[in-house]
């Protein structure tokens, strides 16, 4: 049975600096994977490789056993909820933004869920729905991105530093939500709070290579 996703012997340079050296990672359905390491260690690049936003200098990305081409990246993107670290992910009215995300063809099959329970769980005021995303604080934007991802009911969750803009309590709420999560989850974080989730695999990036910890 091939892995859902496979990163094999990837080398990646950015601005002359090698940020991934012979990096390997395999992802199976339902896996929970934590990737940690200091900033600038190439953590975000791993998501960008999986989503086809950047190309590795060498090595390959496999999707269900086949080398990923433009079409498989399209297929992968339909399966993923991607929460970027950079919070400039959208603008305009929050409700309109949620509607827009549901209107995407790949997301139309899901029944339109009520966002308010997740708002309560992540301690967001419901009146945020009427605000503009530009007016929200970093923490509010980050939770909005997480909630949006959850509403989209995807198969694979790619969370890039998902608690970085949150205070401790909000972060624990978010972590609690993902603790008994039945979807495939890959978290990039340097924050030890995330270690409370029992991740199947934990990779620590050091000098470009991935060191697998068994937890």
């Amino acid at each position: 049975m091939p892995h859902l996703l496979d990163i094999q012997n990837v080398h990646l340079k950015y601005n002359q600096k090698e940020i991934l050296t012979d990096f390997n990672l395999s992802v199976d359905q339902g896996d929970k994977i934590l990737i940690s390491g200091i900033s600038g260690s190439g953590k975000t690049s791993i998501f960008k490789l999986i989503l086809g936003f950047i190309k590795a200098d060498s090595g390959s990305i496999l999707f269900k056993g086949n080398k990923a081409d433009a079409q498989s990246f399209q297929r992968i993107r339909q399966l993923t909820a991607y929460i970027p670290q950079d919070l400039d992910f959208a603008d305009g009215n929050v409700q309109a933004f949620l509607d827009q995300m549901m209107q995407i063809k790949a997301n139309r099959s899901i029944s339109k869920p009520d966002p308010l329970p997740l708002f309560r769980e992540f301690m967001l005021e419901p009146d945020i729905l009427n605000k503009n995303i530009e007016e929200l604080s970093g923490g509010e934007k980050q939770r909005l991105a997480l909630i949006t991802g959850l509403l989209l009911q995807k198969e694979i969750y790619l969370l890039d530093e998902p608690g970085s803009a949150l205070d401790h309590e909000a972060r624990l709420r978010v972590i609690a939500h993902f603790t008994n999560f039945d979807k495939t989850l890959i978290v990039v974080a340097h924050d030890p709070d995330w270690l409370s989730i029992s991740f199947a695999k934990h990779y620590e990036l050091k000098n470009g290579a991935g060191w697998e910890h068994t937890i």
Partner: peptide
Amino acid sequence: RNEVRYHYLLGNGATAFE
């Protein structure tokens, strides 16, 4: 200028055209 937004939409299922 808005690469993050473009990637965000793609990473959440949008086609390039969307």
